[in-house]
Amino acid sequence: MRSIPVPTGSRSGSTTSAVAPAAGAPRPGPAAAVRAVGVHKRFRTRAGVVTALQDVHLEVAAGEFVSLIGPSGCGKSTLLRLVADLEEPTSGELSVFGKAPRVAREAQDYGIAFQQAGLLPWRSVRGNVELPLELHGVGRRERAGRARELLALVGLSDFADHTPAQLSGGMQQRVAIARALAERPSLLLMDEPFGALDEMTRERMQTELVRICAESGAAVVFVTHSIPEAVFLSDRVVVMSPRPGRISAVVPIRLPGTGERTEGLREDAAFFAAVTAVREALHGGAAGTPAVAAPETAAGAPRGVDLR
């Protein structure tokens, strides 16, 4: 897994590694993987102006796992696309590892898995996983080795020479995830990557993702519709509300014991408590989950779910 060097050398390392603080940051510390300050996004359409995002403040630390959850159309994908520099904010400030999103994209700081798998149908599964490496000039042998590792990771070793059309939707998604991981990015952007998977594969992939993130120290922004998934994976769950899309609550998840996210956690009472807290936040911030529309730089940090 670690035998192949990082091609771009852009990895900022694990959460504990010291990174130079961003100049003029409100709080000194490592450069955040993602920092959004007062971000608005409006789409001009023929039917009128759609406000997809309104006044979004969010900070994702290096190595942190943050999930975005909220009803359909509340702007989760839009926020992810802004971070990926596939779309530009109408106003507000956005930075990725202290850089403008465009610079971060060109430096290959992030890997992305879209809501659709988006595999190239004329390439084999292996060829799809190798695509980013190929584009960035990684040699043939190294590419093949990396593709083998990644396909083993997502459990598709036997399908390396198949074409995407020969795979099920869930298998295609797993290929897309392998592709997103190919360059060991320090930031992973994932838009409902497990949406098409069956429950068993889904839980296995979640466990794998936790392991990959712990190993690589990558920060993750993860869009999902599943509350248990968000709770199991995340350090923080960001709850969004629609029309206009904004962040209505941030629920920190604190784990019992050593903080390991293992299968046992799924049956822990604290896990269910966290699920309930996120659900209540999602259904209108009831039962003492405060709506938070500011980054957690404020002194009175939002009350989260302490599972300790």
Binding site: R81, A84, D85, L86, R105, E106, Q108, Y110, I112, F114, Q116, G118, L120, W122, R123, L131, P132, E134, L135, H136
Partner: peptide, 23 residues
Amino acid sequence: VHRELLRSYAATPAQLARTVTIP
């Protein structure tokens, strides 16, 4: 989705043509 994928890889126009558009 393919166009955006290649954009996320900061691919050049020639790379886009070779790997996506022409195939």
